[in-house]
Write a protein that binds this DNA or RNA. Structure first.
Length: 457
RNA sequence: GGCGACGUAGCCAAGUGGUUUAAGGCGGAGGUCUGCAAAACCUCUAUUCAGCGGUUCAAAUCCGCUCGUCGCCUCCA
């Protein structure tokens, strides 16, 4: 039984999909800049959820949107003096590059707000027809107070929220709490035609419309960062449930934590201390980044520190070493490492609200069993295969990290031959010199069973 | 002010009433192996879970208070 924590009910609940295919919507990024590690965290978490649900036999349809019409995009486009599409195209490419590099599988559909404009406008019209929204001065607003359930996700009360909020109300709004579904056109902004005049959609309505179009009016899981609970997800619920009458819009609401820096503060774009994914990937393997993230539970706020990613890189070496262990050709004992208890632990941990730290602990324990099995000469092939499978569920590729030695394989092997000659003649210091040279280039060597093996760090 | 999260070893981090006299990783110490190493294996590395008080046969886990940290309430994964 898979249990997932549901932000809506604030407890763990058994996960049972509505239909025979799990419908999952994950809030994507606004494409006005490169992705940072906070985006990586969210994408990795829901990628792992997707992979794990498939591992448990579910079919999954995952939708992750691009918000490609937004104030920040417009600001950036104006600043650089280029059309907004140039900005969005560039950063959509950058997003894919980052996520591919992190071994995050692409969603089933990656819709863009600008490509689903008819659905967005149609949904706004439905809300107006139902009396949930009203046009004014070319904009359309949602009547928050008409929705009795408003605030159920964030636990906020409308009046208490307003107390802490700025009260500079836009002209034409009936109530300061109302939010925009459609924004009347302003000069030099991207615009679309609508029954209410030229303009562009508000942020919240995009997600409802894209979820409806690509998944349907009721979905199984809606994911995103903790910071999206209010107002974004609260507003999505209000719009979606008002328009469709299907309650709940999403059975499960899942929220990943926010990356935290050494001072303990949340890392966000506005703080300007983001750590770019593409540059992180130049320094670390995707496996190290994923392991670092997944060694914390998804609902906590992982600490962002290069030292921790470097530690994860060392941890990955251990797993990689284990899957390279070969079983004896003739297994005289006939024994083999029993990996099933470890797979059971892995599954139980993952079933419990995606407890990846526990699941990873099970993998490491299995890694130890493989080394022990090797040392006692028993068959470890099944266990090695199991490590590969379980790692795969977490999206760990177990591939060697990118080469930084600057040496070709042939050059490395030539140096190793030199060292062999030196060793044969017992010129130990010469031999060590070669080893130091290789080590400096990030190549580690090992003399085992009369042979020298090497690997790039 | 409202809503919420958190404080576990040198560091990261699970565990949320007894099966854990607290997983796993990194780091550190000793041993085996090795020409020496590396890797691996073995052993050790929190009598204790921010502090204080309470409930209980039993608490890191529940309750209260105190101290400290952070998030949301405004664009944000």
């Amino acid at each position: 039984m898979i249990q997932l924590y549901n932000s809506l009910t604030r407890k763990k609940e058994e996960f049972v999909p509505i239909g025979d295919e799990v419908k999952m919507y994950v809030c994507g990024v606004t494409v006005y800049d490169d992705s940072h590690l906070g985006h990586a965290l969210s994408s990795i978490v829901f990628d792992v959820l997707h992979r794990y649900l498939e591992y448990r036999g579910f079919k999954v349809r995952r939708v992750q949107n691009f918000t490609d019409v937004d104030d920040k995009i417009i600001t950036r486009a104006n600043k650089e003096g280029v059309p907004a599409e140039e900005i969005t195209e560039k950063y959509i490419e950058s997003f894919y590059e980052s996520m591919d590099g992190l071994n995050v599988r692409r969603a089933t559909v990656h819709p863009r707000a600008t490509e689903d404009m008819p659905e967005i406008i149609g949904l706004i019209q439905r809300l107006i027809d139902g009396g949930w929204a009203y046009p004014t001065n070319g904009s359309v607003y949602f009547r928050v107070r008409r929705d009795d359930g408003y605030g159920k996700l964030s636990g906020q009360n409308i009046d208490e929220m307003l107390e802490a909020t700025r009260h500079d109300m836009e002209v034409g709004k009936e109530d300061p709490a109302d939010f925009a579904l459609w924004k009347a056109v302003k000069p030099d902004e991207p615009q679309w035609g609508s029954p209410w005049g030229q303009g562009r959609p508000g942020w919240h309505i995009e997600c409802s419309a894209m979820a409806f179009k690509h998944l349907g009016e009721q979905i199984d899981i809606h994911g995103g960062g903790l910071d999206l609970i209010f107002p974004h997800h609260e507003n999505e619920i209000a719009q979606s449930e008002s328009a469709s009458g299907s309650v709940p819009f999403s059975r499960f609401w899942m929220h990943n934590g926010m990356l935290r820096n050494a001072v303990g503060q949340e890392m966000s774009k506005s703080l300007g201390n983001a750590f770019n994914v593409n540059s992180a990937l130049e320094e670390f393997s995707s496996d190290a980044i994923r392991l670092w993230i997944l060694q914390s539970h998804y609902r906590t706020n992982p600490l962002l520190d290069k030292e921790l990613i470097a530690a994860a890189e060392r941890s990955m070496r251990r797993i990689r070493q284990a899957v390279e262990v070969e079983s004896p050709a003739f297994d005289e004992v006939g024994e083999s490492v029993d990996f099933r208890p470890f797979e059971k632990r892995f599954t139980e941990a993952m079933d419990d609200d995606l407890n990846t730290p526990q699941a990873i602990a099970a993998i490491f324990d299995l890694v130890r069993e493989v080394f022990r099995g090797r040392d006692s000469g028993i068959d470890v092939s099944g266990a090695v295969e199991s490590i590969r499978d379980l790692s795969g569920v977490l999206g760990l590729s177990l591939e060697a990290p990118p080469d930084k030695s600057g040496l070709s394989d042939a050059e490395i092997e030539a140096l190793i031959r030199q060292r062999h000659e030196a060793r044969d003649e017992k010129r130990w210091s010469d031999a060590d010199l070669v080893r130091d040279q290789l080590a400096a280039a990030g190549v580690s060597i090992a003399d085992t069973a009369g042979e020298t093996t090497w690997s790039r760090k």
